[in-house]
């Protein structure tokens, strides 16, 4: 549905987006994840036809966003970072105006406006001026505006930024409902966002794509090795040496707490389950085993390890990132 190929955007000498390629299939929800200044907004502005690319092409439903702009725009709904509202217009007038400029046939305007206002739960604010709405309502009116012409593609720039936790949950629900009927691209610099709403994630840092995958695969793939966490009660013992002797264990990091308690992280070769050996060793040494569990790398860790890396050496295949993460 969306094809982005070798997209670059330069502002003067500064390269904000650097050779970015990805595609989004029909009905998919793609998360565009990256720290502030990564180039998310710039990429979205190019996809929506707000500004032309310096290099590369973008097509939406087969229409080039630059050379076939009108057709591409008819199929795209866009919610910018700040909802583009006219403060002096009432919500209904505003949504009606957008319906007209998006090319909804005159006869259908009224019906579409009612539908969309119901769907985004803003019907109760229909006669309120846009400028007088709360942040949460502004965002919903922004979403209504993006949906009004029932576009194939929805581009949402940080749709949950600035909302309170309850509003965030509602917004996510709404977005999840929208996937399936629409192809959705949403940007965010907040991680839980992607793991909860998106089918696929594009991680972008300093204008470059550093990884493209499903949230689950990313987590799995980036765990180059398995890490176990255990806590034992072993007063005065050399825990590190005893555990490092177990076959398949590559690294042991122990940290002594009070009362002879020791917290230990153990890395082992991938696919090898060392829990039994670990337990047996602890018992054999006469220590008390208080806790033993696998440590999953959170998306947060992955994100940090990917995006804080030197941009030049960041490949889409994440192996180096994984080693770094494991040894960190």
């Amino acid at each position: 549905m969306i094809e982005v190929q070798h997209l670059s955007k330069r502002y003067g000498p500064f390269t904000a987006v650097d050779d970015v390629s990805f595609s989004v299939g029909a009905g998919e929800i793609l998360g565009f994840l990256g720290p502030n200044g990564a180039g998310k907004t710039t990429t979205m502005r190019i996809i929506t036809g707000y500004m032309p690319a310096s290099e590369g092409t973008v097509t939406v439903a087969g229409h080039d966003v630059f050379s076939d702009a009108i057709e591409a725009k008819k199929r795209t709904g866009y919610l910018p970072e700040t909802p583009p509202l006219y403060p002096d217009m009432s919500v209904r007038d505003y949504v009606t105006f957008v319906a007209r400029i998006k090319g909804v046939p005159s006869r259908e305007v009224r019906g579409r406006v009612d539908d969309v206002m119901k769907k985004t739960h803003i019907a109760d604010m229909a006669s309120r001026h846009c400028g007088k709405l709360s942040k949460g309502y502004k965002q919903r009116v922004g979403l209504a505006q993006a949906l009004i012409h029932n576009p194939d593609v929805l581009v949402l720039d940080e749709p949950t930024a600035g909302l309170d936790p309850k509003q965030i949950i509602e917004a996510r629900q709404l977005i999840t409902e929208l996937g399936g009927n629409h192809t959705v691209v949403l940007s965010t610099h907040i991680l839980p966002e992607v793991s909860q709403t998106c089918n696929r994630v594009v991680i972008i840092a300093r204008g470059k794509v550093v990884a493209v995958d499903t949230p689950d695969n990313l987590t799995a793939r980036l765990r180059g090795s398995e890490t176990m966490y255990l806590q034992v009660s072993a007063p005065g013992a050399d825990v590190t040496q005893a555990l490092a002797a177990i076959a398949g264990i590559t690294r042991v990091k122990a940290e002594a707490g009070g009362n002879g308690l020791v917290s230990i992280e153990v890395d082992c070769e991938q696919g090898r389950d060392v829990r039994r050996e670990l337990a047996a060793t602890v018992v054999h040494q006469g220590w008390g085993l208080l806790e033993l569990r696998p440590m999953r790398m959170s998306l947060e860790d992955i994100f940090l390890s990917l995006t804080t890396e030197d941009a030049g050496s960041a490949p889409a295949d994440a192996a180096p990132a994984a080693t770094e993460a494991a040894s960190a």
Partner: peptide, 14 residues
Amino acid sequence: RSGTMELLLTSPLT
């Protein structure tokens, strides 16, 4: 200033 230019320029208008 208000960002509504983004709405106009991403709508199917010339």
